[in-house]
Write a protein that binds this DNA or RNA. Structure first.
Length: 751
RNA sequence: UGGGGUAUGGCCAAGCGGUAAGGCAACGGUUUUUGGUACCGUUAUUCGGGGGUUCGAAUCCCUCUACCCCAUCCA
């Protein structure tokens, strides 16, 4: 793979590997077996198995079967199939969360003993009420005060099935006032009087996702637990459970990515189910569905799906991928490998009046640009069928095919000219009488006739009838809402398309390109010798000139949106006073003064630094920018540097000992280990170079090494100026005085 | 409304202070016995808006805006 840019997950994994955090990378694909997998699952499979493969680790397949009422074994089979079909192998046996029920139970007991979990007996409604809302804190249930013994006893009896569903639950004792709703004493176990498809009737209680998932990951030695964005809020519990239990390291960490969306289709379990249940589609494997089964039956290849996943990348922004990207991936995959055959979907009879007898023509399966060998015989006689729209009596401009005045080549055969048009009573064309040019035979053409197109055809008596199913997008709406957006023409069945006879001995699961139509797949379910059925996988790409006829010029051009700013919270009186002082007395610009005045920590740091070195503007700038960054994820007493050090740093800038660029570098060093700025500058030799005599040779060297860029710059590409500055600074380890470099570059070297 | 996220061309997406990668789509052109493929070229003076810091900002700071997720005994 060339130029593969890394996504954020690769980065994380590599960092962890470099830091020696784990011996081996272990990922997992953990679906709940409660529905059929779709292309969104394929993305997850591709990521999880892909990372494991790339970093020489392994990936587990784990059925997250903690809810016996929704899960079933038919789905685990479908899930296994999907992974296998995509070409991945999971590590050892398929894992099940239900295999860990006993261990999980032990962990629950441990939490109770640590007084970190309790049995709650509030009813559902009360519990919701107690949870509070996003803006209001919740309150703890009185049952949270139960003793360890009582909790242990209750849990044991819950497990034994002594209580009814809903009577009790086990909850983690965390924080009912947490701003993260998920942390308000989340449920760990609930009673379920249900038959589990694997655990049978052994358990009366089942663990919740938030308790089971992190621990299952841990039990399996998973290192990177990759899930979708909607679990971001759950990460805090994930960490809480693992940390609270004080498990032996290493432990897994959760990372989230954006789930896949594709336009003109739906991905949610609910909407997919609706389509199937209302029989809008024929089943879970309907070729219009984005399910793995559907895609597979449609004729998509595993490689094409994997390539698609690779192309769309992995990120954290919610996005909608264009179906065109998926279609591209299958065309791209099939083009260099499937044989081309001739099929006529909407036949128009052509009689070649000057041809007698019959012959078999040698026809290559692949065009000149596909490096594959192979051919078949195609029967030819005076009676053939061509595609109805490959003839036009009154052609529009730019029409390349057969017309009364324009000959056309029959692919692999002869050139013909239209001599007569036969119509029925209504004026519909029913037949063309044509003549062929005997010296125009494909491969030995001496006729010298120029044609603009070669069309596919079939011999009338030997051609076979087949059923062709043409699929279009399932919805008319780019972002479908519901069944009201269904495309009524998403499936068009042609019962009697005609295909050249060589194709028919073929069986299910074979792919062809029907020349000039698209890629087709022998339907694995309905294909039979009596009624051969082919599914259209995807059309050939439609060229611009073809489209121009149909599409009208689309109106576009949107004006740039004007954004109205919201109101800024007014300053308090105290802040006002500071702001005045900073702008008037210290001459800070209002923006800097504003941020400083509004932030108590920053302003106190600032005031203190000023007492060491009186350089109000420069110190203010450093504090509002660099220090503010440090304070974003640290508290003020975690800072390693002192205001005094800031002052000495700025003093060096003011002395011109170092540049502001270096100052930032030094500052970073300071905030990491609290070293004295003067020390850092000295030990790293960061004193700035301002002597033109030193800098000039470096500049000349850079210029000599980049003649093309110099030329481009001189030709007017002024953006390149920054490139040269950057190169010089890089060459001097950042020590060159950038102002001097700019000067020299502008006035001497590049003038 | 509290918290957690996200914003880079028509659609994905790299980028982590020094020339705005790449793919899809679109548009030209060359080749072509597929209006396909392949190949060549064009398409972001600008990164949600506004300010600030810097010689230099998509990248750092402030601020505003929009969208997504969280108040299942679902996962």
């Amino acid at each position: 793979m060339i130029n593969k840019s890394k996504n954020f997950l690769n980065r994380i994994v590599e960092e962890d590997l470099n830091a020696g955090k784990y011996q081996e990378i272990v990922t997992r694909f953990p679906p709940e077996p409660n529905g059929f997998p779709h292309i969104g699952h394929a993305k997850s499979i591709s990521i999880n198995f892909g990372i494991a493969k790339e970093y020489l680790g392994h990936c587990n397949l784990r059925m997250d079967d903690t809810n016996p009422t929704t899960e079933d074994t038919q789905y685990v089979e479908a899930l296994k199939d999907a992974v296998k079909w995509l070409g991945f192998e999971w590590d050892k046996e398929v894992r099940y969360t239900s295999d860990y029920f006993s261990k999980l139970y032990e962990y629950a007991i441990q939490l109770i003993k640590m007084e970190k979990a309790y049995v709650d007996s509030l009813d559902e409604e009360k519990m919701r009420e107690y949870r509070g809302t996003v803006t209001q804190v919740g309150k703890r249930s009185k049952f949270a005060q139960r003793s360890v013994e009582e909790n242990l006893d209750l849990l044991e009896r819950m497990k034994k099935g002594e209580f009814k569903e809903g009577e009790h639950v086990l909850r983690a004792k965390i924080d009912m006032a947490s701003p993260n709703m998920k942390m308000r004493d989340p449920l760990l176990y609930r009673i379920k009087d249900a038959h589990h498809f694997r655990a049978k009737d052994e358990w009366s209680i089942y663990p919740m996702y938030d308790f089971a998932h992190c621990l299952s990951d841990y039990i399996e030695g998973v290192t990177h637990s990759i899930c979708t964005l909607e679990f971001e809020n759950n990460r805090e519990i994930y960490d809480w459970v693992l940390d609270t239990l004080e498990l032996e390291p290493p432990r897994p960490y959760q990372h989230e990515f954006a789930r896949l969306n594709i336009n003109y289709t739906v991905m949610s379990k609910r909407k997919l189910l609706e389509l199937v249940e209302k029989e809008i589609v024929s089943g879970w494997d309907d070729p219009r569905l984005p399910t793995i089964a559907g895609l597979r039956r449609r004729g998509y290849t595993p490689e094409s799906i994997l390539n698609f996943c690779e192309q769309i990348g992995v990120a954290k922004a919610n996005s909608v991928v264009d179906v065109a990207q998926l279609e591209f991936s299958i065309r791209d995959n099939l083009n260099p490998k499937v044989p081309r055959v001739m099929c006529v979907l909407d036949p128009l009879k052509v009689t070649i009046t000057n041809y007698e007898g019959s012959e078999e023509l040698e026809a290559s399966y692949y065009p000149y640009d596909v490096p594959k060998e192979g051919s078949r015989k195609v029967p030819f006689s005076k009676e053939i069928y061509i595609e109805r729209d490959d003839f036009m009596e009154n052609p529009s401009k730019g029409y390349f095919r057969l017309t009364p005045d324009q000959p056309v080549r029959l692919k692999h055969a002869y050139i013909i000219s239209c001599k007569e048009i036969i119509k029925d009573g209504q004026g519909n064309i029913v037949e063309i009488k044509a003549e062929y040019y005997p010296d125009s035979k494909s491969g030995s053409d001496t006729s010298g006739i120029k044609v603009r197109s070669a069309i596919q055809w079939v011999e009338a008596n030997k051609a076979k009838e087949i059923e062709v199913r043409l699929y279009d997008r399932l919805y008319n709406n780019e972002a479908p809402d519901g069944i009201e957006d269904i495309n009524p023409n998403s499936l068009k069945v042609i019962k009697n398309a005609l295909i050249e006879p060589s194709v028919l001995p073929e069986k299910i699961g074979v792919r062809f390109q029907f020349e000039r139509h698209g890629y087709f797949f022998a339907d694995p379910i309905d294909y039979s010798d009596e009624t051969p059925v082919f599914n259209k996988i995807v059309s050939l790409k439609e060229s611009s000139s073809q489209k121009r006829k149909v599409s009208q010029n689309k109106p576009k051009l949107q004006a740039k949106k004007v954004q109205i700013d919201g109101e800024v919270t007014p300053m308090t009186q105290e802040e006002e006073v500071l702001f005045e002082k900073y702008t008037n007395e210290l001459k800070l610009n209002s923006e800097v003064a504003n941020t400083l005045a509004r932030d108590k920590q920053l302003s106190s740091l600032y005031e203190e630094a000023l007492t060491t070195h009186s350089s109000p503007i420069n110190i203010a700038n450093l504090i509002t920018n660099e220090v503010a960054r440090e304070l974003k994820n640290k508290s003020i007493d975690e800072l390693k540097f002192t205001p005094k050090q800031i002052a000495t740093l700025i003093k060096m800038v003011d002395d011109k000992t170092i540049s502001t660029k270096i100052a930032k570098q030094v500052f970073e060093e300071m905030s990491k280990n609290g070293e004295e700025p003067t020390q850092i500058v000295e030990s790293k030799g960061l004193i700035q170079i301002s002597d033109p005599a030193v800098i000039l040779p470096i500049i000349e060297d850079i210029i000599a090494k980049n003649p093309e860029n110099v030329e481009k710059y001189r030709a007017g590409n002024s953006k390149l100026f920054g490139f040269f500055v950057g190169q010089v600074l890089k060459a001097t380890g950042g020590k060159a005085n950038p102002k001097v470099v700019n000067e020299l570059l502008k006035n001497v070297a590049l003038s």
